[in-house]
Design a binder for these strands. Structure first.
Lengths: 227, 227
DNA sequence: ACCTGAACACCGTTCAAGT
DNA sequence: ACCTGAACACCGTTCAAGT
């Protein structure tokens, strides 16, 4: 629908067709320079507009003004492009988690709360990034060196913090693993319910989505620390 | 890859080419009869094999042995086909929930547990159906008459049962709504973690997925009824 | 070394024409 | 009333040829 306006019809561009060597073409250099980075940016933009599922390599190339085959010199496949996007998203995710831990008071309950809130904040403020990471059918999770490592780091932190919650010592050995799974399922479920468009069904409007999710996390924490 | 074997080369079929009116063609009648139903079955089969995202109308038509345009006489679009599939899936989901309630003892905790277990059972035993319903980008949720109604019925049941949990009367008015969201987010999160392939990351192998999820539901219920 | 553009095998969807 | 098959505008991916 959207057209590239003013392309090829611009009468003000230099008419150096007779002696091309004297005036090097500034408009469309044959080599893009940093096509890889441009592809990632355009792909993310497209994902934000139409959803990660509708990112097409051809459309990305079209937006940058490059041929349909060019992207494949930098990414072996559409999946490889999306995986690179996922790696960037995962980096941001881990940063947000770790920054939240640095800001939080040292007691276990505060740290667990900071972890939960960081997860929710990140997923709700960057829903496209969250979708790219979580829906594994778009990316080659196993084929990435950093993706598994970063996710494991967050999981290890979750397990560790949950284990320090008051009353956890009195429970059966390994109980904190079960609590960690429960906590992760809850925040993941909240984030996915939101990106899957299920909040309207629960009478939660867009503007109230983030506070509602944070409140749900707080509710879980309050019942976890109670006994 | 897979070929329809023994089609069109079968020498035993009636050779009524000279007088077609005497022997009506049994092999490939021009009218399929119940194409609509066949399309739904083939589409579900394809979704189970390759995932709901990879269901293509052309491939569905090919498997049934019908032309590429034929499906559009019965479904306005690929989305309409997937929506019909979702409506079937939602019917099964609601049945499972209601059957679980009938089997359960009458006390609130048992009924909540039955609700949670029914959700998990259904999602884990029919992952394809679960994915079709939950990922809204494949279907026209708003355009379906039954989808919203069925989901609302389950949500209403969730809110009602959570409100009957012991100790809920002592809480602030409307607290059971927050608990219902928390409970839903947890079961939804568990189900999505599983179909999104995240259980291996949590050292939960395929054979242990269902019991692990049920245990997580039980853990949540145990902390909910504690105070 | 990097990019083009034609080519191939796919899509969803439409629509005149066939039965 | 229902189905066919060509047509159109898309895809992802490959690869000889161009710069």
């Amino acid at each position: 629908m959207a057209k590239d306006s003013g392309q090829g019809q611009d009468e003000t561009m230099p008419r150096s067709t007779t002696k091309a060597s004297l005036a090097p073409p500034r408009q469309k250099p044959y080599h893009h320079g940093n096509l890889r980075q441009s592809l990632l940016e355009a792909a993310l933009e497209l994902a934000k507009e139409s959803g990660p599922d509708h990112v097409s390599v051809r459309e990305v190339a079209r937006r940058i003004g490059v041929s349909s085959g060019a992207p494949f010199r930098h990414f072996a496949s559409r999946t490889a492009l999306m995986t690179a996007l996922a790696e960037q998203a995962m980096g941001l995710f881990r940063s947000e988690i770790e920054a939240g831990q640095k800001r939080a008071p040292g007691d276990p309950v505060s740290r667990v709360r900071a972890l939960g809130h960081a997860f929710i904040h990140w997923a709700f403020l960057h829903p496209t990034h969250f979708q790219i990471i979580s829906s594994r059918h778009l990316i080659d999770f196993a084929g990435s060196a950093t993706l598994g490592r970063d996710l494991d780091a967050v999981r290890a932190l979750t397990v560790e913090l949950l284990g320090q919650l008051p009353g956890m010592g009195a429970r059966s050995p390994g109980a904190h693993l079960d609590f960690a799974l429960l906590a992760r399922a809850t925040v993941y479920g909240l984030a996915r319910m939101r990106v899957d468009g299920q909040f309207p069904q629960w009478d939660i409007e867009e503007s109230d989505a983030l506070p509602a999710a944070l409140a749900s996390v707080d509710l879980l924490i309050s019942v976890l620390k109670a006994p």
